[in-house]
Amino acid sequence: MLDRTLSLPDLDTARLEAEAAERGALPDAPLAMPRQRLERTATPALLARLRALLAPRLDA
């Protein structure tokens, strides 16, 4: 199954990593991932409604 005479390439570290990055490059096929909402934004909305409710009374 495997080549038993494996050897590591005689390259310096930067070239080794560059070669791995080049030969390992992922397919270029982007897919959108819309960010999900997990926290309720009710508090700011509730405060805005309260402000709208109270403002006319305070102004009066």
Binding site: L2, L6, L8, E17, E19, A20, A21, R23, P27
Partner: peptide, 26 residues
């Protein structure tokens, strides 16, 4: 760690003749 990964990735590629099939991205 990055260097070891790169080295072993190239070893894996050669062992499995897998360029274009086994990818590596850091």
């Amino acid at each position: 760690g990055a260097t070891r990964e790169a080295a072993w990735y190239l070893t894996l590629l050669r062992a499995r003749d897998a360029e274009g099939r086994i990818f590596y991205r850091r």
